[in-house]
Design a binder for these strands. Structure first.
Lengths: 135, 135
DNA sequence: CCTTGACCTTCCAGTAACTGGAAACACTAG
DNA sequence: CTAGTGTTTCCAGTTACTGGAAGGTCAAGG
């Protein structure tokens, strides 16, 4: 399989597959006489695996860890669980931040009449928030 | 005020204040004889404004827009509202994504016994998900 | 056999928003 | 006067790609 076929199968851009190959995350198992990367089904599975893991927010380095685990079935699933649980905490934290962000901004937007008067609660809200100061 | 004083007052790292100065987002209003950046209270207010806006997820370029609006009180608040509302949509979208991510990963983590057996539902869950395939 | 167009290669540069570090100059306390 | 801290500029690195240029390869059509 050439790079565009494998990229299509894995749901990744060609550039990204090449990049993963360059950084040694998912190298091409072989090269054609002309130097074309040639991939097999195992590589496709790995690329899908990486794509999914990236969608879950795992960094490329974490993907590398995960991929090592994935490659070596003798490793315990506790390692994987540890990594995943850490990610889960981070996601939950991010969600909380995003929620308060959303609430605050929504409040500001609602307070804003959006007309052509020059004073704007959004601007004011962004500016204040240090003490209880109100300009 | 020297850069570290203003950075402290604005709640930003010195490096970041210098960076904002370099890119012209919040330039230092003056320089000392020795070339030290010297800031005034207005600059501190702008830096706080930017920090807050950044915390809200506005990009630096959006901060620049917002800052222009903030500087020029003659602009309508509708402009600000438009920018903020767009951001709000993006935040909501990101929240939805994060939620499904969280749910999926949590499900995987829960299914994983975390013991030393080599098969791991997290790995399996990351790997599959294309068709209804189950290895 | 030749050309055309799609596909492949490598390498270089750029993105966002900083962060870290080096070399050198400035300021302050003792 | 000296030590220590603060400041300057500039350069490089970070993350995970993405875009583009210059050039080699392959399959089909005429």
């Amino acid at each position: 399989m050439n790079i565009s076929a494998v990229a299509g199968a894995a749901g990744l851009p060609v550039k990204t597959v090449r990049y993963y190959s360059d950084i040694g995350l998912v190298p091409a198992p072989a090269r054609s006489a002309a130097g074309y990367r040639s991939y097999d089904d195992a590589a496709v599975r790995k690329l899908v695996f990486v794509r999914r893991a990236r969608e879950f927010g795992f960094s490329v380095e974490e993907c590398r860890e995960l991929l090592d685990l994935y490659e070596d079935r003798h490793r315990s699933s506790a390692d994987v669980k540890r990594i995943a649980a850490r990610r889960l905490d981070e996601i939950a934290e991010k969600q909380r931040e995003l929620q308060s962000l959303h609430d605050e901004l929504a409040h500001l937007v609602e307070a804003c009449r959006g007309d052509h008067r020059p004073d704007c609660p959004i601007i004011d809200g962004l500016e204040a928030k240090r003490a209880g100061e109100q300009r």
